[in-house]
Protein backbone atom coordinates (compact mmCIF):
# COMPACT_ATOMS: atom_id res chain seq x y z
CA UNK A 1 0.00 0.00 0.00
CA UNK A 2 2.72 2.43 0.96
CA UNK A 3 4.40 1.83 -2.39
CA UNK A 4 1.14 2.66 -4.18
CA UNK A 5 0.93 5.94 -2.29
CA UNK A 6 4.56 6.58 -3.16
CA UNK A 7 3.96 6.10 -6.90
CA UNK A 8 0.79 8.16 -6.79
CA UNK A 9 2.48 11.08 -5.07
CA UNK A 10 5.48 11.13 -7.36
CA UNK A 11 3.13 10.76 -10.34
CA UNK A 12 1.15 13.79 -9.22
CA UNK A 13 4.33 15.81 -8.87
CA UNK A 14 5.61 15.06 -12.38
CA UNK A 15 2.02 15.37 -13.60
CA UNK A 16 1.87 18.92 -12.24
CA UNK A 17 4.81 19.91 -14.38
CA UNK A 18 3.28 18.31 -17.47
CA UNK A 19 0.03 20.13 -16.68
CA UNK A 20 1.78 23.51 -16.56
CA UNK A 21 3.49 22.86 -19.89
CA UNK A 22 0.30 21.55 -21.47
CA UNK A 23 -1.50 24.67 -20.33
CA UNK A 24 1.13 26.75 -22.13
CA UNK A 25 0.46 24.84 -25.37
CA UNK A 26 -3.28 25.18 -24.86
CA UNK A 27 -3.33 28.93 -24.30
CA UNK A 28 -1.33 29.66 -27.45
CA UNK A 29 -3.33 27.15 -29.47
CA UNK A 30 -6.60 28.63 -28.30
CA UNK A 31 -5.78 32.15 -29.25
CA UNK A 32 -3.82 31.56 -32.46
CA UNK A 33 -4.31 27.93 -33.58
CA UNK A 34 -0.53 27.58 -33.50
CA UNK A 35 1.21 24.69 -31.76
CA UNK A 36 4.20 26.37 -30.17
CA UNK A 37 6.99 23.79 -30.26
CA UNK A 38 9.27 26.15 -28.35
CA UNK A 39 7.16 25.61 -25.22
CA UNK A 40 9.57 22.97 -23.86
CA UNK A 41 12.45 25.41 -24.35
CA UNK A 42 10.70 27.96 -22.17
CA UNK A 43 10.86 25.34 -19.41
CA UNK A 44 14.58 24.83 -20.01
CA UNK A 45 15.28 28.55 -20.10
CA UNK A 46 13.30 29.12 -16.91
CA UNK A 47 15.29 26.43 -15.14
CA UNK A 48 18.69 27.45 -16.49
CA UNK A 49 18.17 31.14 -15.79
CA UNK A 50 17.16 30.24 -12.24
CA UNK A 51 20.35 28.20 -11.78
CA UNK A 52 22.38 31.06 -13.21
CA UNK A 53 20.84 33.73 -10.97
CA UNK A 54 20.84 31.55 -7.88
CA UNK A 55 24.18 29.77 -8.14
CA UNK A 56 26.40 32.18 -10.03
CA UNK A 57 25.01 35.59 -9.13
CA UNK A 58 23.73 34.50 -5.69
CA UNK A 59 20.43 36.36 -5.94
CA UNK A 60 17.82 35.42 -3.38
CA UNK A 61 14.98 33.13 -4.38
CA UNK A 62 12.10 35.60 -4.97
CA UNK A 63 14.29 37.81 -7.16
CA UNK A 64 15.55 34.76 -9.06
CA UNK A 65 11.99 33.63 -9.76
CA UNK A 66 10.85 37.11 -10.74
CA UNK A 67 13.76 37.66 -13.13
CA UNK A 68 13.61 34.21 -14.74
CA UNK A 69 9.86 34.40 -15.31
CA UNK A 70 10.11 37.93 -16.71
CA UNK A 71 12.93 37.09 -19.09
CA UNK A 72 11.25 33.96 -20.43
CA UNK A 73 7.93 35.76 -20.96
CA UNK A 74 9.81 38.48 -22.77
CA UNK A 75 11.45 35.90 -25.04
CA UNK A 76 8.06 34.36 -25.70
CA UNK A 77 6.60 37.78 -26.47
CA UNK A 78 9.47 38.53 -28.86
CA UNK A 79 9.06 35.17 -30.60
CA UNK A 80 5.51 36.17 -31.49
CA UNK A 81 6.22 39.84 -32.10
CA UNK A 82 9.29 39.44 -34.29
CA UNK A 83 8.84 36.12 -36.03
CA UNK A 84 5.22 35.05 -36.08
CA UNK A 85 3.57 38.43 -36.54
CA UNK A 86 5.83 39.29 -39.45
CA UNK A 87 5.12 35.96 -41.13
CA UNK A 88 1.40 36.52 -40.64
CA UNK A 89 1.65 39.95 -42.23
CA UNK A 90 3.09 38.25 -45.28
CA UNK A 91 0.09 35.92 -45.25
CA UNK A 92 2.06 32.83 -44.18
CA UNK A 93 0.09 29.60 -43.80
CA UNK A 94 -0.56 28.12 -40.38
CA UNK A 95 1.89 25.31 -41.07
CA UNK A 96 4.63 27.84 -41.80
CA UNK A 97 3.98 29.49 -38.47
CA UNK A 98 4.24 26.15 -36.67
CA UNK A 99 7.55 25.47 -38.43
CA UNK A 100 8.72 28.91 -37.27
CA UNK A 101 8.16 27.74 -33.69
CA UNK A 102 10.24 24.62 -34.37
CA UNK A 103 12.98 26.91 -35.67
CA UNK A 104 12.66 29.00 -32.53
CA UNK A 105 12.98 25.85 -30.42
CA UNK A 106 16.26 24.95 -32.13
CA UNK A 107 17.52 28.50 -31.80
CA UNK A 108 16.67 28.68 -28.09
CA UNK A 109 18.36 25.34 -27.50
CA UNK A 110 21.52 26.61 -29.16
CA UNK A 111 21.40 29.87 -27.25
CA UNK A 112 20.96 28.07 -23.94
CA UNK A 113 24.05 25.99 -24.71
CA UNK A 114 26.14 28.91 -25.93
CA UNK A 115 25.23 31.38 -23.21
CA UNK A 116 25.16 28.98 -20.28
CA UNK A 117 26.73 25.53 -20.09
CA UNK A 118 26.50 22.00 -21.41
CA UNK A 119 26.74 20.25 -18.06
CA UNK A 120 23.44 18.37 -17.75
CA UNK A 121 23.38 17.82 -14.00
CA UNK A 122 23.33 21.39 -12.75
CA UNK A 123 20.66 22.45 -10.32
CA UNK A 124 20.07 24.87 -7.50
CA UNK A 125 19.04 24.00 -3.92
CA UNK A 126 15.42 23.27 -3.03
CA UNK A 127 13.21 26.26 -2.22
CA UNK A 128 13.19 25.59 1.50
CA UNK A 129 14.93 22.51 2.90
CA UNK A 130 15.83 19.04 1.70
CA UNK A 131 13.80 17.51 4.52
CA UNK A 132 11.85 14.37 3.77
CA UNK A 133 8.17 14.20 4.58
CA UNK A 134 6.48 10.88 5.22
CA UNK A 135 2.85 10.47 4.21
CA UNK A 136 1.21 7.09 4.77
CA UNK A 137 4.52 5.29 4.52
CA UNK A 138 5.56 7.17 1.36
CA UNK A 139 8.47 9.56 1.35
CA UNK A 140 8.57 12.84 -0.53
CA UNK A 141 10.92 15.80 -0.33
CA UNK A 142 9.69 19.29 0.52
CA UNK A 143 10.39 20.47 -3.03
CA UNK A 144 7.66 18.05 -4.19
CA UNK A 145 5.22 19.90 -1.98
CA UNK A 146 6.39 23.17 -3.51
CA UNK A 147 5.95 21.83 -7.02
CA UNK A 148 2.45 20.67 -6.26
CA UNK A 149 1.36 23.84 -4.46
CA UNK A 150 2.88 26.23 -7.02
CA UNK A 151 1.19 24.31 -9.83
CA UNK A 152 -2.20 24.31 -8.16
CA UNK A 153 -2.04 28.02 -7.37
CA UNK A 154 -0.93 28.83 -10.91
CA UNK A 155 -3.66 26.71 -12.48
CA UNK A 156 -6.22 28.32 -10.22
CA UNK A 157 -5.08 31.81 -11.21
CA UNK A 158 -5.15 30.91 -14.91
CA UNK A 159 -8.71 29.62 -14.65
CA UNK A 160 -9.75 32.75 -12.72
CA UNK A 161 -8.14 34.88 -15.40
CA UNK A 162 -10.05 33.21 -18.22
CA UNK A 163 -13.39 32.98 -16.45
CA UNK A 164 -13.64 36.25 -14.57
CA UNK A 165 -11.56 38.98 -16.18
CA UNK A 166 -12.61 40.91 -19.24
CA UNK A 167 -9.16 40.37 -20.80
CA UNK A 168 -9.46 36.62 -20.26
CA UNK A 169 -12.94 36.60 -21.75
CA UNK A 170 -11.77 38.64 -24.73
CA UNK A 171 -8.99 36.11 -25.32
CA UNK A 172 -11.61 33.39 -25.34
CA UNK A 173 -13.64 35.50 -27.75
CA UNK A 174 -10.66 35.81 -30.11
CA UNK A 175 -10.32 32.04 -30.10
CA UNK A 176 -14.04 31.56 -30.55
CA UNK A 177 -14.60 33.91 -33.48
CA UNK A 178 -11.78 36.17 -34.56
CA UNK A 179 -13.77 38.37 -36.91
CA UNK A 180 -16.49 39.01 -34.35
CA UNK A 181 -13.85 39.80 -31.73
CA UNK A 182 -12.33 42.37 -34.08
CA UNK A 183 -15.75 43.92 -34.65
CA UNK A 184 -16.23 44.26 -30.89
CA UNK A 185 -13.12 46.43 -30.89
CA UNK A 186 -10.96 43.77 -29.28
CA UNK A 187 -7.35 44.22 -30.34
CA UNK A 188 -6.60 40.69 -31.56
CA UNK A 189 -2.86 41.30 -31.90
CA UNK A 190 -2.67 42.46 -28.30
CA UNK A 191 -4.53 39.36 -27.11
CA UNK A 192 -2.09 37.16 -29.06
CA UNK A 193 0.81 38.89 -27.33
CA UNK A 194 -0.80 38.30 -23.95
CA UNK A 195 -1.26 34.61 -24.81
CA UNK A 196 2.43 34.24 -25.62
CA UNK A 197 3.51 36.12 -22.49
CA UNK A 198 1.26 33.93 -20.37
CA UNK A 199 2.61 30.74 -21.95
CA UNK A 200 6.17 31.92 -21.40
CA UNK A 201 5.37 32.52 -17.75
CA UNK A 202 3.84 29.07 -17.32
CA UNK A 203 6.85 27.41 -18.99
CA UNK A 204 9.30 29.34 -16.84
CA UNK A 205 7.42 28.51 -13.64
CA UNK A 206 7.46 24.81 -14.54
CA UNK A 207 11.20 24.97 -15.20
CA UNK A 208 11.99 26.80 -11.98
CA UNK A 209 10.07 24.47 -9.68
CA UNK A 210 11.34 21.23 -11.23
CA UNK A 211 15.03 22.18 -11.49
CA UNK A 212 15.96 21.70 -7.81
CA UNK A 213 14.59 18.16 -8.10
CA UNK A 214 15.78 16.97 -11.50
CA UNK A 215 18.29 19.55 -12.67
CA UNK A 216 18.00 21.19 -16.07
CA UNK A 217 20.00 20.62 -19.21
CA UNK A 218 20.03 22.75 -22.35
CA UNK A 219 18.72 19.91 -24.50
CA UNK A 220 15.80 18.68 -22.42
CA UNK A 221 13.35 21.05 -24.14
CA UNK A 222 12.18 18.29 -26.46
CA UNK A 223 11.53 15.97 -23.55
CA UNK A 224 9.35 18.49 -21.71
CA UNK A 225 7.77 19.73 -24.90
CA UNK A 226 6.64 16.28 -25.98
CA UNK A 227 5.16 15.48 -22.58
CA UNK A 228 3.25 18.74 -22.45
CA UNK A 229 2.16 18.37 -26.06
CA UNK A 230 0.84 14.84 -25.43
CA UNK A 231 -1.13 16.08 -22.45
CA UNK A 232 -2.55 19.02 -24.38
CA UNK A 233 -3.57 16.80 -27.32
CA UNK A 234 -5.14 14.14 -25.09
CA UNK A 235 -6.99 16.92 -23.32
CA UNK A 236 -8.62 17.90 -26.60
CA UNK A 237 -6.33 20.84 -27.53
CA UNK A 238 -7.82 24.09 -26.41
CA UNK A 239 -9.48 22.77 -23.28
CA UNK A 240 -7.76 24.20 -20.18
CA UNK A 241 -9.21 21.66 -17.76
CA UNK A 242 -8.44 18.86 -20.22
CA UNK A 243 -4.80 19.92 -20.46
CA UNK A 244 -4.41 19.90 -16.69
CA UNK A 245 -6.29 16.62 -16.22
CA UNK A 246 -4.31 14.83 -18.91
CA UNK A 247 -1.02 16.26 -17.64
CA UNK A 248 -1.74 14.77 -14.24
CA UNK A 249 -2.86 11.52 -15.87
CA UNK A 250 0.37 11.19 -17.87
CA UNK A 251 2.44 11.81 -14.75
CA UNK A 252 0.55 9.16 -12.80
CA UNK A 253 0.76 6.70 -15.65
CA UNK A 254 4.50 7.11 -15.92
CA UNK A 255 4.89 6.60 -12.19
CA UNK A 256 2.83 3.41 -12.26
CA UNK A 257 4.72 2.08 -15.29
CA UNK A 258 7.98 2.65 -13.45
CA UNK A 259 6.60 1.18 -10.24
CA UNK A 260 4.60 -1.80 -11.45
CA UNK A 261 5.73 -2.32 -15.04
CA UNK A 262 8.54 -4.71 -14.23
CA UNK A 263 6.44 -6.82 -11.89
CA UNK A 264 3.51 -6.92 -14.30
CA UNK A 265 5.74 -8.27 -17.07
CA UNK A 266 7.51 -10.77 -14.74
CA UNK A 267 10.78 -8.88 -15.15
CA UNK A 268 11.03 -10.20 -18.72
CA UNK A 269 11.40 -6.68 -20.07
CA UNK A 270 12.88 -3.70 -18.35
CA UNK A 271 9.58 -1.91 -18.82
CA UNK A 272 10.55 0.98 -16.58
CA UNK A 273 13.28 1.91 -19.06
CA UNK A 274 10.69 2.40 -21.75
CA UNK A 275 8.25 4.59 -19.84
CA UNK A 276 8.34 7.32 -22.50
CA UNK A 277 7.62 4.81 -25.23
CA UNK A 278 4.74 3.31 -23.28
CA UNK A 279 3.18 6.68 -22.58
CA UNK A 280 3.37 7.66 -26.24
CA UNK A 281 1.92 4.34 -27.41
CA UNK A 282 -0.87 4.86 -24.94
CA UNK A 283 -1.50 8.35 -26.28
CA UNK A 284 -1.62 7.07 -29.86
CA UNK A 285 -4.05 4.32 -28.85
CA UNK A 286 -6.39 6.82 -27.22
CA UNK A 287 -6.21 9.09 -30.23
CA UNK A 288 -7.02 6.20 -32.57
CA UNK A 289 -10.08 5.35 -30.51
CA UNK A 290 -11.09 8.93 -29.68
CA UNK A 291 -9.42 11.32 -32.12
CA UNK A 292 -11.05 14.37 -30.55
CA UNK A 293 -9.28 13.72 -27.23
CA UNK A 294 -10.68 12.85 -23.85
CA UNK A 295 -12.12 16.21 -22.95
CA UNK A 296 -13.91 17.19 -26.15
CA UNK A 297 -17.05 19.11 -25.26
CA UNK A 298 -20.20 18.71 -27.26
CA UNK A 299 -19.72 20.72 -30.38
CA UNK A 300 -22.28 23.40 -30.01
CA UNK A 301 -22.65 25.09 -33.33
CA UNK A 302 -26.02 25.49 -34.87
CA UNK A 303 -26.82 27.61 -37.83
Amino acid sequence: MSSFIQYTLSGLVTGSIYALIALGFTIIYKSTNIINFAQGNFVVLGGMLAIYFREQLHFDLPLTILLSVTIVSLISFLLEFIAIRQCKKRKAKLLTLIIVTIGAAILLRGLAMALFWKDPGKRFPAFTSDAIITIGGANIVTQDVWIFVVTLVTLFLVVLFFEFTITGKSMKACASNKKAAMLMGINVEKMTSIAFILSGMLGAIAGIVITPKLGMSYDSGIFWGIKGFCAAVLGSLGNLIGAVGCGMMLGLMEAYVIGYGDIATFHLFQVSNYKELIVIIFMLLILVIKPEGLFAGKTTSRV
Binding site: L183, M184, G185, I186, T300
Partner: peptide, 25 residues
Protein backbone atom coordinates in the same frame (compact mmCIF):
# COMPACT_ATOMS: atom_id res chain seq x y z
CA UNK B 1 -20.47 48.98 -34.83
CA UNK B 2 -20.73 46.20 -37.38
CA UNK B 3 -23.10 43.28 -36.84
CA UNK B 4 -21.62 40.81 -39.29
CA UNK B 5 -23.19 38.48 -41.79
CA UNK B 6 -23.92 35.02 -40.43
CA UNK B 7 -24.28 36.42 -36.91
CA UNK B 8 -20.74 35.54 -35.80
CA UNK B 9 -21.64 35.22 -32.14
CA UNK B 10 -19.15 33.55 -29.79
CA UNK B 11 -20.50 29.98 -29.74
CA UNK B 12 -18.68 28.72 -26.64
CA UNK B 13 -19.39 31.78 -24.51
CA UNK B 14 -22.66 32.30 -22.65
CA UNK B 15 -25.26 34.77 -23.91
CA UNK B 16 -24.35 36.99 -20.98
CA UNK B 17 -20.64 36.95 -21.86
CA UNK B 18 -21.46 37.62 -25.50
CA UNK B 19 -23.33 40.76 -24.45
CA UNK B 20 -20.61 41.74 -21.99
CA UNK B 21 -17.95 41.56 -24.70
CA UNK B 22 -20.18 43.74 -26.86
CA UNK B 23 -19.35 46.60 -24.52
CA UNK B 24 -15.60 45.90 -24.69
CA UNK B 25 -14.84 49.10 -26.56
Amino acid sequence: VHVPEGRCIFPDLSVWDNLLLGSYS
